[in-house]
Design a binder for these strands. Structure first.
Length: 421
RNA sequence: GGGGGGAUGCCUGAGUGGUUAAAAGGGGCGGACUGUAAAUCCGUUGGCUAUGCCUACGUAGGUUCAAAUCCUACUCCCCCCA
């Protein structure tokens, strides 16, 4: 294991962000010399980002905090093609408009984590948001082939892990998709030319693609740039990160209320607590080491700290503390917090008798009447903390409590308030 | 371009005329146990105004009392040869 000297690599290392580095010593030395410009690519296919992207965002944030310049590269160009690896879906190609609209949403999330500056000012040390559509869409095929295609060895590309796997499993790999890695390599070269970018960071599955860019930049412009990958993030029990109730855990309030975001982190597995504290909070390492000593049920308090810290960053301190308090009231005192996620329903609808099934669906606790019915049968549904046994029960104004709301729950963890208006 | 194989529910994958809303596993969800954890066990997993009805086995037609299952065309994928 290399002993790093630069604050950047030391921090990334101790927080568990490093899986592989192309030339660790040289990169370390470069980081000591002066600010590095590093980039990570993000998909522009959704209007938001989720917990699965958080690792990358945190790496960019660490770059900025240690005095380097991060670039968030939107895959506007590559999204136009659509990722062909999901070949079953025949999904419509995203238009430039869609992508640009998505980028607006994504940018607002980044703004929570990074400080952006003026991309045209070479001396502005703040973060940059770039879009590869700006250069990929203007490429001329013949020129591109002659200028850059010549530097790619098919033999070599075939030997990359990702490609090899596909071949071994006899899985279709289109030429389009094969070109992905070339375009990504070109991105690196282009970012180096535009912003002096010397580092590309990505998930460990990106290793081969990143190296292509490193190679290309060296061959074409004779510049040395670096690759760094982060470990693939899974929970200790091997689940993919970032799904809760089958839905993505979004980083923005509009897609997921702070309370639910807080809950996601509160429900972290014991074995992941230390890892997550390191990666997703900015508590000091000594502090984290202290917290990690907690055993068994004591870990519950540490999980609360984790949840609050992580929520602070994405949603701000006020929202985080409020979420923590709401959870405390709900789970620890059995009381009713008015800050639980809620929906508003017309008062007249309740007056005329709102079926419990419909209410559950409206509250988003069940996706269909059938599912709501099954939950009632399974004894999972509660109305104001009373188990509901009758699926024909109707909500009436008498069900409103002192605070003029009705609390609907499914299971022990999911609660919604219904507010008549 | 020639020959062969295939497309099934969230995913993998059985099913080759009626008993099939479709085996099995995974995943999801709920329950028990706990610590709002993991592991384990149990239940559940198309929709509806529900002893019935509708939608569903790549797409469009056809045969049949009856089709995921048979026929025709189309689309897409895989393999072998060129």
């Amino acid at each position: 294991m290399t002993q790093f000297k630069s604050e950047l690599l030391i921090t990334l290392e101790e927080r568990g962000f490093i899986k592989q580095i192309s030339k660790p010593e040289a990169l370390d030395a470069r980081a000591l010399e002066g600010p590095i410009t590093g980039y990570i690519g993000f998909d522009g296919t959704a209007n938001s980002l989720h917990v699965g992207n958080l690792t990358m965002i945190m790496v960019l944030r660490i770059m900025q905090k240690t005095g380097h310049r991060p670039i968030a590269l939107m895959g506007g160009g590559t999204s136009m093609v659509g990722d062909p690896s999901f070949k079953s879906t025949d999904r419509p190609m995203l238009t430039l408009d869609d992508i640009n609209q998505n980028l607006v949403g994504i940018k607002s999330i980044f703004a929570q984590f990074l400080e952006f500056g003026n991309p045209d000012d070479k001396n502005d040390p703040k973060a940059i948001m770039a879009n590869n559509a700006d250069w990929l869409c203007e490429l001329n095929y013949m020129e591109f082939l002659r200028d850059y295609g010549v530097h790619f060895s098919v033999n070599r590309m075939l030997s990359f892990e990702g490609v090899k796997n596909r071949m071994d499993r006899d899985q279709h790999l289109s030429f389009l998709e094969f070109n992905y890695m070339i375009l990504q390599g070109y991105d690196f070269l282009e970012l180096n030319r535009r912003y002096g970018c010397d580092l590309q960071i990505g998930g460990s599955d990106q290793w081969g693609n990143i190296l292509n860019g490193v190679e290309l930049t060296r061959r074409v412009d004779g510049k040395e740039v670096f690759a760094l990958t982060t470990p693939l993030l899974e929970t200790a029990s091997g689940q993919k990160m970032g799904k809760s109730e089958g839905n993505a855990v979004w980083l923005n309030e509009e897609n997921l209320p702070a309370y639910d975001y807080w809950q996601y982190w509160r429900n972290t597995e014991d074995a992941d607590v230390g890892k997550f504290l390191r990666m997703f909070t900015e508590l000091s390492i000594t502090e984290i080491e202290k917290l990690e000593k907690a055993q068994g049920a004591e870990l519950n308090d540490v999980k609360k700290i984790l949840a609050t810290e992580v929520t602070k960053m994405a949603r701000g301190e006020i929202a985080a503390l409020k979420a923590a308090e709401t959870a405390r009231i709900t789970f620890e005192t059995g009381g009713l917090s008015a800050d639980l996620p809620s929906i508003e329903i017309e008062k007249s609808e309740i007056e005329s008798g709102l079926g419990i099934l419909t209410a559950l669906v409206k509250a988003g606790l069940a996706s269909s009447n059938g599912e709501a019915r099954r939950h009632i049968k399974g004894g999972a549904v509660r109305l104001n903390d009373q188990i509901v046994k009758d699926e024909r029960l109707t909500l009436m104004l008498e069900h409103l409590n002192e605070q003029q709301v009705v609390k609907l729950s499914i299971g022990k963890k999911k609660h919604m308030l219904i507010k008549p208006v």
